[in-house]
Design a protein around this nucleic acid. Structure first.
Length: 936
RNA sequence: GCCGGUGUGGCGAAAUGGCAGACGCAUUGGACUUAAAAUCCAAGGGGCCUUUAAAAGCCCGUGCCGGUUCGAGUCCGGCCACCGGCACCA
C-alpha cells in the first residue's frame, strides 16, 4: 500500500494541538469554574459559572489501568483498552455526561532500580524519561484524557498521600464486633495490660498494619522479600528467580480480616464471572470444624481444622507441619534426632522444591500419640511438610481412606487405612474416595453417625463436638495477610520510626502527618547491603535521627501506589487532602443530580437528540453506578492489584473517607493481542508490533479503528497488518465521500513540492460536490437511522467491532448515492467521531465552513437519535420452510396477518411441489419472521 | 486434579430459538492505466446433477454424540480439543 489514503499526517497533529489548547477534555469538579468558551460549558449552559454537584450533568468515571512506564515503550496491547475507554468517553460526552477520563503512571518499580544498581543513574531520571516517552506515544493516539489530572506514583506530592493512607491503615484495627475497621484508639485493652508498654504491645498487635517475624518469601537474586501473590511456582514473578523461605521482621497488612467482606461484596459488582471466580479461589473460604485432639501423656491439646468432620472415625494418624510450635515438646527422646533432622531438611527446602517434589511425600514419626476424641483410639503423630504451617492450625487429622494426600502418605509409611465413607455407587473403590457418600464404621461409645449422608453426618458430629467442648464449626481462608515491605530503594519509604522503651525493647511509632511526604535519601549505591539490609540502610544520616530513634528502612511494594490512584484523579491537585469530600462524593457517589432528575421527568414523543440522551441516561441511572463506572485493564491484575485496591478501599470506607464499599463497579478485561504468528508478543520471538510504526504508515484513526475492529474487546486475537490496511481503506472511502477529487489532486501536488508538512495546505481541499443541503430520500434516511441505531446499541454493549461494520455498511451505500444530503452526512460524522476523532473533526469543520456555519464542538455535539419510524418497511421478505427446510422467500406487507401469511406461503411457487399429495399437519406462522409448513 | 472460558469459511469474525457466514482480510475476474500502484465493480462454505457455459435445482455443513422443538450455531445432557487461572489450602 503505497498511496496515502488521506492526509492523516497533517490532520492528526492539527486536532491534537487544538484539543490541548482548548482543554476540550477537561472534566470539571463541583465548584470549579467553567471558563467562558469551553465547549462543555456551552453545551450545558454552564459557561462562566461555578456549578455545584447538583448543577453539573451526571458523572461518568471511565478508567484505564495506568501503565508502568517501561523503557520499551507502548506495545499494541496497551492501546486496546485505552481505545475502548476513549471511544466510550467520547460517546458519553456526546450523550451529555460529565466524563472523568484520566491517565497516570504506576512509576515505582524494579526495572528503574535495577538500572540504577548497574549504572548508578538515579531511578527518577530513568522514570522521567520513560514517562515522557509514554506520554508522547499515548498523546499521538488522540485519546481524550484530562491531562490536568495526571498523576505519577513516584511524585512526592502523590506518595505523600500514599504514605498518608498507610498511616490510616496503621492507625486502625479491625473490630470483629462491628466487622469494620475502626481507629486504633477504640481498642479496649484487657485488664492485664497494666503498663504503658503492655498497652502499646497490645495495640500494636491489633493494628491493620503490623510487624511480624514470620517466615517470608526471600528472593536472593532480587535482594527482597515477595508477597505470596508475587511467587509463581516457587519462583519470583519478576525475573523468575528462585525464592526461599526465611524468617524476617516484616510489615504486614491485615487483609485477612476483610476476607469475608471481600468475598461477599463480589456479588455486588459487575465483573466477569471468571474474574470473580479467580478472586473467590484466591480468598479460598472453606467451612469445616476445628477439633481438639488430646496428646497421650501430655497436657497439650492439638487443634486441627477439617472440612470433613464426618470422617473423624477414619483419622488413623495425625500430621503436624515441621514448624509446628509443640513439635519439640512432644517428640520422644528416641525420635528427637530424626525429627530435628527432618525439620532442618524441610526449612531448607525452597517452595520450588516443595512443589516439584510434591509427588513424593516425606515425613517423620514424633514418637507421640494423640487420642481420637470420637473413639478414644491412640493414633501416631507425625510431622511432614505436606502440611502447611500457614494454613488452618498447621496440624491435621489424617484420614487416608478419603483424602488423596493422606492416602499417599499412609501408603508410603504403612499407616492404617480405615473406610468411613461408602461411595454412592457400590462399584466405586472406597480407598481414596474423597467425595460425599454415606458414613460407615462411624460409631463410638458416645456418638454414632453411621448410616448418615455426608451432609447430615457433618452436622451431627459438629454439634456433638461443640456440646462436648471438643471443637466447633470453623471457617478458614486461604488468603494470607499481605506482606507489605520490600528491601528496595525505589518505593515509598514507610513513615515510621523505631524507638526503645525503658526496658530496651524496640517499638514503632508513626511520623506525624504534617511531616509527609517522607522522601527517600540520596544514595550512590542502590544495592541492598551485604548483610541483607535494604538499600535505605546505607543512608546512615537519614536513618539515624537526633533523638536516637531510627527510621524504618523497608519501602512499600509497587502495589501501594496503585491501590488508591483512582481516588487521587478525582482531585489530583488537592494539597490539603488525599481527595476532597465533595469531589469524592460527586464522582464516586450514586446520587443522581436533581437537574438530571428534573430533565428526565419531561416527556416527549418525538425521538429527538435530547430525548434520546435522556433515555440512555435513564438506562444508566437504573443501573446505579457507585464508584468507577467502568474500569478496563488486563487479566494479569485479577488477584493482585484488584484485591489490594478493594481492601484499601474498604478500610477507607470504614473510616469515612470514601462513599462506597467497592471502588470499581464495572470491570472489563481486554483480551490479549497476539503477534501476527498467533504467538504471544515477545522480543525473543521478534513478533512485537510497535504502535509508532503503525501510526506512521496508517495514522492514529486507522490504528484505533483496527484495534476495535479485530474482534470483541475481551477476546484474545492475533494482530494482522492487512487488517489495518482494510480499516485504513475504509477511512479513505469516508474521506472521498466528503472531499472533491480534483482539489485533492491539487492538494497532493502541492504537498509533494512543499518543503515540510504544512497543515495550511489542507485549505486547498474543497468539499465533494455531491454533498448538498437537500432533503434526504427515504432510503437515505433509513440507511442513516439503521446505522445510528446499531452504533448506539453496540456502544452501550461495548461491541465496537460490529459498530464499525455498521458504519462500513452505511459508507458502502453512501458511495452509490448521486447526492449526499448534509442531514445524513453530518450525523454520520458524529457516529464516526468516537472511533476516528481526527478525521471526523476535520470533515466536520469543513462541512460547516462550506455551508457557511461555525462548527459547534464535535466533542460536545449531542449524540444523534434514531427515529424508529424511519426504519419501518412497508414490505418485507420472509422465508417459507416446509418441515423446517427453507424452500422459498416471499415478499409480503410488513403488517400482514397470520392468515394472509399462511395463504401466501401455501401458494408460493417453490413451496407448492412439496405440498402436492400430502396433508398439511400444521402451519407455524411468526408474523414478520417466517412461515413453517409441516406436512406428513 | 479443580475452576473459568472458547470451538462457525483460507483468515479476523457476524447472527432477540426463525434465510448460517453481516463487515473486513486474503483470493479470483473485470473496469480504469502505455504499465503498475491506488481506486471502482463483481464472484465467492463443501458436494451432486445437468450443461458449450451459466442459471436453476438437490444434498451436506457451526468440535463430537444424543435430546428438547414445527424449527437449534443458539436451549438441555454426555464427551473431545484448545486457552487462561489455581493447585499438598486438609
Amino acid at each position: 500500500m503505497s498511496r496515502r489514503q488521506y492526509p492523516f499526517h497533517l490532520i492528526e497533529p492539527k486536532w491534537q494541538a487544538k484539543w490541548e489548547m482548548e482543554q476540550t477534555f477537561r472534566a470539571f469538579n463541583p465548584g470549579e469554574s467553567v471558563p467562558n468558551g469551553h465547549p462543555f460549558g456551552t453545551r450545558h449552559s454552564l459557561a462562566g459559572k461555578n456549578p455545584s454537584a447538583t448543577e453539573l450533568p451526571p458523572k461518568f468515571y471511565i478508567l484505564d489501568m495506568f501503565p508502568y512506564p517501561s523503557g520499551a515503550g507502548l506495545h499494541v496491547g496497551h492501546p486496546e483498552g485505552y481505545t475502548a475507554t476513549d471511544i466510550l468517553s467520547r460517546y458519553r460526552r456526546a450523550c451529555g455526561c460529565n466524563v472523568l477520563h484520566p491517565m497516570g503512571w504506576d512509576s515505582f518499580g524494579l526495572p528503574a532500580e535495577q538500572y540504577a544498581v548497574k549504572t548508578g543513574q538515579h531511578p527518577r531520571k530513568t522514570t522521567d524519561e520513560n514517562i515522557a516517552n509514554f506520554t508522547r506515544q499515548i498523546k499521538s493516539l488522540g485519546f481524550s484524557y484530562d491531562w490536568s489530572r495526571e498523576v505519577a506514583t513516584t511524585d512526592p506530592e502523590y506518595f505523600r498521600w500514599t504514605q498518608w493512607v498507610f498511616l490510616q491503615i496503621y492507625n486502625s484495627w479491625f473490630n470483629p464486633e462491628t466487622n469494620r475497621a475502626e481507629p486504633i484508639s477504640t481498642v479496649k485493652h484487657p485488664t492485664d495490660c497494666d503498663t504503658d508498654q503492655k498497652k502499646r504491645a497490645y495495640r500494636d498487635s491489633k493494628r491493620l498494619a503490623f510487624v511480624s517475624e514470620a517466615p517470608v518469601n526471600w528472593c536472593p537474586e532480587l535482594g527482597t522479600v515477595l508477597a505470596n501473590e508475587e511467587v509463581i511456582d516457587g519462583k519470583s514473578e519478576v525475573g523468575g528467580f528462585p525464592v526461599i523461605r526465611k524468617p524476617m521482621r516484616q510489615w504486614m497488612l491485615r487483609i485477612t480480616a476483610f476476607a469475608e467482606r471481600l468475598l461477599a461484596d463480589l456479588d455486588t459488582i459487575d465483573w466477569s464471572e471468571s474474574l470473580k471466580e479467580m478472586q473467590r479461589n484466591w480468598i479460598g473460604r472453606s467451612e469445616g470444624a476445628g477439633v481438639d485432639f488430646q496428646v497421650d501423656g501430655h497436657a497439650a491439646k492439638i487443634r486441627v481444622f477439617t472440612t470433613r468432620p464426618d470422617t473423624l472415625f477414619g483419622a488413623t494418624y495425625m500430621v503436624l507441619s515441621p514448624e509446628y510450635k509443640l513439635v519439640k515438646e512432644l517428640t520422644t527422646p528416641g525420635q528427637a534426632a530424626a525429627v530435628n533432622k527432618y525439620q532442618e531438611f524441610a526449612s531448607g527446602r525452597s517452595d520450588l522444591e516443595r512443589t516439584e517434589l510434591a509427588k513424593e511425600k516425606t515425613g517423620v514419626f514424633t514418637g507421640a500419640y494423640a487420642i481420637n476424641p470420637v473413639n478414644g483410639e491412640k493414633i501416631p503423630i507425625w510431622i511432614a511438610d505436606y502440611v502447611l504451617a500457614s494454613y488452618g492450625t498447621g496440624a491435621i487429622m489424617a484420614v487416608p481412606a478419603h483424602d488423596t494426600r493422606d492416602f499417599e502418605f499412609a501408603q508410603k509409611f504403612n499407616l492404617p487405612i480405615v473406610q468411613v465413607v461408602q461411595p454412592p455407587d457400590s462399584k466405586t473403590d472406597w480407598q481414596g474416595f474423597v467425595d460425599e457418600g454415606t458414613s460407615v464404621n462411624s460409631t463410638g461409645p458416645e456418638i454414632s453417625i453411621t448410616g448418615l449422608s455426608t451432609t447430615e453426618a457433618k452436622k451431627k458430629i459438629t454439634a456433638w463436638l461443640e456440646e462436648k467442648g471438643l471443637g466447633k464449626k470453623t471457617i478458614n481462608f486461604k488468603l494470607r495477610d499481605w506482606l507489605f515491605s520490600r528491601q528496595r530503594y525505589w518505593g515509598e519509604p514507610f513513615p515510621i520510626i523505631w524507638k526503645r522503651d525503658a526496658a530496651g525493647n524496640l517499638y514503632h511509632e508513626a511520623l506525624p502527618e504534617s511531616t509527609l511526604p517522607l522522601l527517600p535519601p540520596a544514595l550512590d549505591d542502590y544495592k541492598p547491603t551485604a548483610d541483607g539490609q535494604p538499600p535505605l540502610a546505607r543512608a546512615t544520616d537519614w536513618v539515624n535521627l537526633p533523638d536516637s530513634s531510627i527510621r524504618e528502612t523497608n519501602t512499600m511494594p509497587q502495589w501501594a501506589g496503585s491501590c488508591w490512584y483512582y481516588l487521587r484523579y478525582l482531585d489530583a491537585k488537592n494539597a490539603q487532602s488525599f481527595v476532597g469530600k465533595e469531589a469524592e462524593s460527586y464522582w464516586m457517589g450514586t446520587s443522581a443530580s436533581p437537574k438530571f432528575k428534573a430533565q428526565s421527568s419531561k416527556s416527549g414523543d418525538i425521538a429527538t437528540a435530547a430525548n434520546f440522551e435522556l433515555e440512555t441516561l435513564n438506562f444508566e441511572l437504573g443501573k446505579a453506578t457507585p464508584g468507577v463506572d467502568l474500569y478496563v485493564g488486563g487479566t494479569e491484575h485479577a488477584v493482585l492489584h484488584l484485591l489490594y485496591a478493594r481492601f484499601w478501599h474498604k478500610v477507607l470506607h470504614d473510616l469515612g473517607h470514601v462513599s462506597t464499599p467497592e471502588p470499581f463497579f464495572k470491570l472489563v478485561n481486554q483480551g490479549l493481542i497476539l503477534g501476527e504468528d498467533g504467538q504471544k508478543m515477545s522480543k525473543s520471538r521478534g513478533n512485537v508490533v510497535n504502535p509508532d510504526d503503525v501510526l506512521k504508515e496508517f495514522g492514529a484513526d486507522a490504528f484505533r479503528l483496527y484495534e476495535m475492529f479485530m474482534g470483541p474487546l475481551q477476546d484474545t486475537k492475533p494482530w494482522n497488518t492487512r487488517g489495518v490496511e482494510g480499516v485504513y481503506r475504509f477511512l479513505g472511502r469516508v474521506w472521498r465521500l466528503f472531499v472533491d477529487e480534483k482539489a485533492e489532486t491539487a492538494f497532493e501536488q502541492a504537498e509533494t513540492t512543499a518543503p515540510a508538512p504544512n497543515a495550511e495546505l489542507l485549505d486547498i481541499l474543497v468539499l465533494n460536490g455531491a454533498i448538498a443541503d437537500v432533503a434526504a430520500s427515504a432510503a437515505q434516511l433509513k440507511a442513516l437511522h439503521a446505522c445510528i441505531k446499531k452504533v448506539t446499541e453496540d456502544l452501550d454493549g461495548m461491541r465496537f467491532n460490529t459498530a464499525i461494520s455498521a458504519m462500513m455498511v452505511l459508507v458502502n451505500e453512501a458511495n452509490t448515492w448521486q447526492t449526499r444530503p448534509l442531514s445524513v452526512m453530518r450525523p454520520f460524522l458524529q457516529l464516526l467521531a468516537p472511533f476516528a476523532p481526527h478525521v471526523a473533526e476535520e470533515l466536520w469543520s469543513r462541512l460547516h465552513s462550506t455551508f457557511g456555519q461555525t462548527a459547534p464542538s464535535l466533542t460536545y455535539a449531542p449524540w444523534p437519535a434514531f427515529d424508529p419510524s424511519l426504519l419501518v418497511e412497508s414490505e418485507i421478505e420472509i422465508p417459507i420452510s416446509v418441515n423446517g427446510k427453507l424452500r422459498d422467500l416471499i415478499r409480503v406487507a410488513t403488517d400482514a396477518d397470520n392468515a394472509t401469511l399462511e395463504a401466501a406461503a401455501r401458494s408460493a411457487e417453490k413451496v407448492k411441489p412439496y405440498l402436492e399429495g400430502r396433508t398439511v399437519k400444521k402451519v407455524i406462522v411468526v408474523p414478520r419472521k417466517m412461515v413453517n409448513i409441516v406436512v406428513a
